[in-house]
Amino acid sequence: MESVTHLPGLSAVMIWTLLKVLIVFSAVMGIASLWTWVERRGSAMLQDRIGPNRALLFGRWQLLGLPQLVADGIKFFFKEDQVPPHVTKSLYWLAPVLAFVPALIGFAVIPFGRDFTYKGVPYHLSILEPGNSMGMLFPLAIGAVAVYGILVAAWSSNNKWAILGGMRASAQMVSYEISLGLAVLAIFMKVGGYDPSEIIKDQMASGWFIWRQPLGFLVFFTCMFAESNRLPFDFAEGEAEIVGFHNEYGSMKFALIALSEYGHIITASALIATLYFGGWAVPFMPEAPVLLTILFFLIKLLFFLWVFVWVRWTLPRFRYDQLMFLGWKVLLPISMANLIFNAWLMSRGH
């Protein structure tokens, strides 16, 4: 460490940041690809099936079907990368990147463990240091940008079903963003700040927001499903029933788009855990050791990831008009009422 820090332009802080970026992105990618397995095995278990178990590691070890991941990866890499002749080439190549990058960087502000001090230097366990005054606005902004991957993919495919899928998805994401923002706003108001670490501190002091704002949680939770295009709101691509925005994509480009969906649900569950379930806070242990807080954050994250899978295989898909009805006429009033109710509660004290 000592010799490295003497290199020009490299300080301990920078190394720490790089390390965090590396760890977090590889963890997100790892969980995302792992979750393609959990999705299939878990759905099989939920539906009394068995799921993928034919792929064998070195032709011998079944490992609960985990080698399927490797097999899929190899398949995606070596598949012919076909570009249909009627696409808009540049945008067609750009779209998977546009879909993938927001899915990765949305995680950046979320603290995944307690701050700690080592040799007098404070270290924060989130990629962007707290107090950057971007706070929770960052994931919201990234979530807003995530639409472009879908829109661009849909339009550049030059395929009418792809365009229809993209339009369904974009309309849905734009409509649900409003209730999402209002639900989060109620939390900002209560905390009096919008930095995720402040929100977690507030929750440690006076209880998780799931108990304090159950209505806001419901709205936020539902909107997260819509934002990450998961069932019951998966109008961007509906597997067998509705043709989606990426039906002109194959091989690694498709893999990027599919992985970006999992990246979105990881960010979504991290947001749910941070905003409503105390983030890395360990219940009944205000001074928990750092590793334990990371573990608790992981547990919460994985639980909500599992809930995403669980809900997907429990509920049927909504009809499109039902989706719009729910978004504009149910969730928006509820989130507004939640906001105003909380504002009233706060104003009573003054």
Partner: peptide, 8 residues
């Protein structure tokens, strides 16, 4: 700017 203009 990103949320409102580019996002919506």
């Amino acid at each position: 700017q990103i949320i409102v203009y580019s996002g919506a």
